[in-house]
């Protein structure tokens, strides 16, 4: 079992009379990529800010890299990388200048294992800003600005990197570059990554484990595949026979396909089994939470409220 990097027990956060976090438990091990999903206002950013040491919690135990973030040292801070949702300052600084300047703060905390800071030109190349290295920040496009945010987050070669919606504003190619960058940080430098996103395809590609935060608690915790299996039983099966295309929704797709071949044998072509997407799963988890209904793996996707006027449970 790898070393625990983040350990949180019964984390609570109260603003006025409202509990934003109501007993969050989570654990992250070294080298893991964790994605925090949840509707707006679910407490994702609050959770991350507490883990980063930027926000005092109302209650609970929090350990990050072995220390309590609320009372951690400068040395501890040097081990953390942060990419916030938006940066708008340093308008007149140039890209290389700013990265070199920020990097210097990390120099006293370098080790043989983790030389700090990173070589600035290498870093600029790595985030794809070589052509803009001498540009003023105010002249960068939104996507370039975001690449710079990521560079700032990793200039100190962090052990633990927090990314708050890192790819907002990225085009598909920039997004792909960013995913490669994260994979490199994790695979080659043993970095642990915690990110929030609303892009479920991104969560599926990047995360070893997905945590769904709703109503101030973690309501699901597992790989994209595990979560998908948790909420949905029925899969869609498509095939063609004699030039005609068919579709079926099967509780047991494997058994259905077996019977299809027993019945039609070689006539079956273009076979496809499509399980629920992470998006389907996420929507159902959040919906279950909002309506207070307990998880019911057999219920598929029909929402009683939605079909009430159209034949009730006729489809079940």
């Amino acid at each position: 079992m790898a070393e625990t990097v983040i350990a949180v027990r019964d984390l609570r956060m109260r603003y006025g009379s409202r509990d934003v976090l109501d007993g969050v438990d989570l654990e992250v091990r070294r080298g893991e990529v964790i994605t925090l999903l949840g509707p707006n206002g679910a407490g994702k950013t609050t959770t991350i800010e507490i883990l980063e040491g930027f926000r005092e919690r109302s209650g609970g135990d929090v350990r990050v890299l072995g220390e309590d973030p609320a009372r951690a040292s400068e040395e501890w801070r040097a081990g953390i990388g942060i990419v916030l949702q938006s940066w708008r300052d340093h308008r007149r600084w140039r890209v290389r200048e700013l990265l070199a300047h920020l990097g210097e703060y990390y120099a006293p905390y370098g080790t043989a294992e983790r030389p700090r800071p990173r070589d600035v030109d290498e870093l600029i190349d790595r985030v794809g800003l070589t052509d803009s290295a001498d540009q003023m920040l105010m002249r960068l496009s939104g996507g370039q600005r975001r690449r710079l945010d990521v560079a700032i987050g990793i200039v100190g070669r962090p052990e633990l990197l927090f990314l708050d919606e890192p790819t907002a504003g990225f085009d598909p190619e920039a997004r792909r570059d960013f995913h490669d960058l994260v994979h490199g940080l994790v695979d080659l430098e043993d970095t642990t990554v915690v990110l929030t996103t609303h892009d479920l395809a991104e969560a599926e590609k990047l995360a070893d484990r997905i945590l769904v935060l709703a109503g101030g608690r973690i309501v699901a915790d597992g790989s994209a595949d595990a979560l998908t299996r948790q909420v949905r039983a029925r899969a869609e099966v498509r095939w063609s026979r004699d030039g005609q295309r068919f579709v079926h929704a099967a509780d047991d797709a494997t058994a259905f396909v077996r019977s299809l071949f027993v019945q039609h044998g070689d006539e079956i072509a273009d076979l496809e089994v499509r399980r629920a997407s992470l998006e389907d799963t996420y929507m159902q988890l959040v919906h279950q939470h909002e309506t207070g209904s307990s998880p019911d793996p057999g219920s598929g996707f029909a929402r009683p409220a939605d079909v009430a006027g159209t034949g009730g449970e006729a489809t079940r």
Partner: peptide, 13 residues
């Protein structure tokens, strides 16, 4: 979308 959810098939289906 409502029909797709009631039938357990994808929206495009």
């Amino acid at each position: 979308r409502d029909l797709a959810e009631a039938l357990d098939v994808h929206y495009q289906t």
